[in-house]
């Protein structure tokens, strides 16, 4: 791939061109736009309602209060936004691979992963982001976390790092379709697991905690990154490593994806 050496400027220019087309075509379906918005908001509300219902009967979960849980939940939604908005095309990767349409991406003189991913911008993710942000602000306020530049900066850095994990999990589970049929179940399993990111990992047993930290790193989607704001007195090492690990997992998932894409080339189906 001699062309993968092209600069960031070149790619960002193409990116906005492709994305603009996608957004235009999506906005022309008004009903879909509004119903997707409704669906997204309902999902997010139901998550919050779940916490509210549990905390009607139970005072806390493993030392975590209602507002702390809302904070984790909001953080999860915010950090899932890049995966939702920018990498959403992963969800239909398997169709492109089975039907053979995927070959069209291989023939362009740009990075295959980049070209495939840039094709979709998922608008409904914006509602998830807004809802998550409101939840975080609400909990931030209730928990009386000092609102200073350091904390805001921490929040931004940590949510960006956490989003790398969300993208990595999505990339890796979508790319499984290059090897096995019916990979939808892997995608749906990983999204089911991601649902547990909103709970503190400390509730799980040790072997599970290790799996959720290093194998399917959902603990990094909210639990570890949030510690720097919620429990500033006892921050685990992994919290500080979130950005490093995030980058590492992202690169690994990218390599995995590309290996799969090359495999597709090879079979030439």
């Amino acid at each position: 791939m001699e062309n993968s050496k092209r600069g960031v400027k070149f790619y960002s220019k193409i990116y906005f061109k492709i994305i603009a087309q996608d957004i235009k075509s999506k906005l022309s379906y008004r009903a879909d736009f509004f119903l997707s918005m409704l669906g997204m908001i309902l999902i997010n509300v139901s998550g919050a309602v779940g916490f509210w219902l549990i905390f009607q009967r139970f005072p806390e979960i493993n030392g975590w209060t209602y507002h702390e849980m809302i904070f984790l939940y909001g953080f999860c939604l915010v950090s899932a936004t890049p995966a939702q908005c920018l990498f959403d095309n992963n969800w239909v990767l398997r169709y492109a691979v089975y039907s053979g349409d995927f070959i069209k991406y291989c023939f362009r003189p740009i990075n295959v992963f980049f070209y495939y991913i840039s094709e979709t911008f998922d608008l409904k993710g914006i509602w998830q982001f807004l809802f998550g942000l409101i939840a975080v602000i609400y909990a931030w306020n209730k928990l009386q976390i000092p609102l200073d530049a350091v904390n805001v900066l921490l929040f931004i850095i940590q949510s960006l790092s956490a989003s790398l994990f969300a993208v990595a999990i999505l990339n890796a589970s979508a790319a499984s379709c290059f090897w096995i049929e019916n990979s939808f179940f892997i995608l749906s399993l990983s999204s089911k697991l991601r649902d547990f990111a909103k709970y503190p990992v400390s509730i799980f047993s040790k072997p599970l905690r290790i799996i959720l930290t290093f194998v399917v790193p959902i603990a990094f989607l909210a639990y570890y990154p949030c510690q720097s704001l919620l429990r500033p007195d006892a921050i685990p090492v992994l919290t500080w490593l979130t950005p490093v690990f995030g980058a590492l997992f992202f690169v690994l998932s990218y390599k995995f994806w590309m290996t799969g894409a090359k495999r597709f080339n090879g079979t030439g189906s």
Binding site: F34, L35, L38, G39
Partner: peptide, 23 residues
């Protein structure tokens, strides 16, 4: 609507919560 995702998710959420399957 000729669109599926939103409407189906709305159904899943309502059924999930109100059937007692989540809590």
């Amino acid at each position: 609507t000729e669109s599926v995702w939103g409407i189906n998710v709305a159904r899943e959420v309502v059924v999930g919560v109100l059937s007692g399957a989540t809590i």
